[in-house]
Write a protein that binds this DNA or RNA. Structure first.
Lengths: 111, 111
DNA sequence: AGATAGCGCAACAAATGGTTGCGCATTGGC
DNA sequence: GCCAATGCGCAACCATTTGTTGCGCTATCT
């Protein structure tokens, strides 16, 4: 019996990186470019650009050219999928923890 | 304003790795050793051992010597903390998505 | 037209996740 | 009691990821 649900590893590892989580955080407040994001993060523009490639590959963000800028925004639908996976794993583990707790209580009662 | 709550990056990246998530899954079903885990996973015992070091460092598992074996078990308390972080980030993003949706609806209505 | 701002590409460094190979300790059968 | 087998830890090595710096192209603004 498997406890954790099947999860898209690529999507999960995309949101697993702390820098990418902070980028998503910033992008949720509005469109940003690689340059503007790097100004608010402790990494260089190029590092941000690489992360944007990763996030784009799993569909969490999309970039659109606007003049000489490339503005990125969060894809709501795909972020909702990611959130669903987080909550799915979380509640699976939580359920297992509860079960263990109930068993422990049952054993204690039968002592 | 920050959207995602402050999260323990070490704890998060510990559960971010797919192999470690599967190890936790197996360990939730009962104690295991590095060798027994590696038999159920597509990686070598040494890879499993390294992951166990990582999981131990963040307190998600603890190992106890039993003869020549070293049996690992999940630390319920710390796993509960990890679950709380997952659900915390998930619901923060979810809340933000809902807010965006409400704003979009409001704009649509005012058209 | 020329200075500037934004971006992409390439080369490099460090950390991570994986492998193989080795040696040491404990255990169990004879 | 001995010896083979089992389980573990350590070290060397490889590929990928995450970060850096440096360079050059293109588009914009005066």
């Amino acid at each position: 019996m498997s406890v954790t649900p099947d999860v898209d590893d690529d999507l999960w590892s995309a949101i697993g990186d702390p820098t990418r989580r902070r980028m998503l955080d910033l992008l949720l407040a509005g469109e940003e470019t690689a340059t503007s994001l790097s100004a608010r993060l402790p990494v260089t523009r190029q590092a941000v650009a690489k992360h944007l490639v990763v996030l784009d590959r799993v569909g969490l963000v999309r970039g659109a050219l606007a003049g000489r800028e490339k503005r990125y925004r969060v894809d709501d639908t795909q972020l909702a999928v990611a959130v669903a996976q987080l909550e799915s794993v979380g509640s699976a583990w939580d359920a297992r923890l509860q079960r263990i707790k109930r068993i422990a209580e049952a054993i204690e009662k039968s002592d």
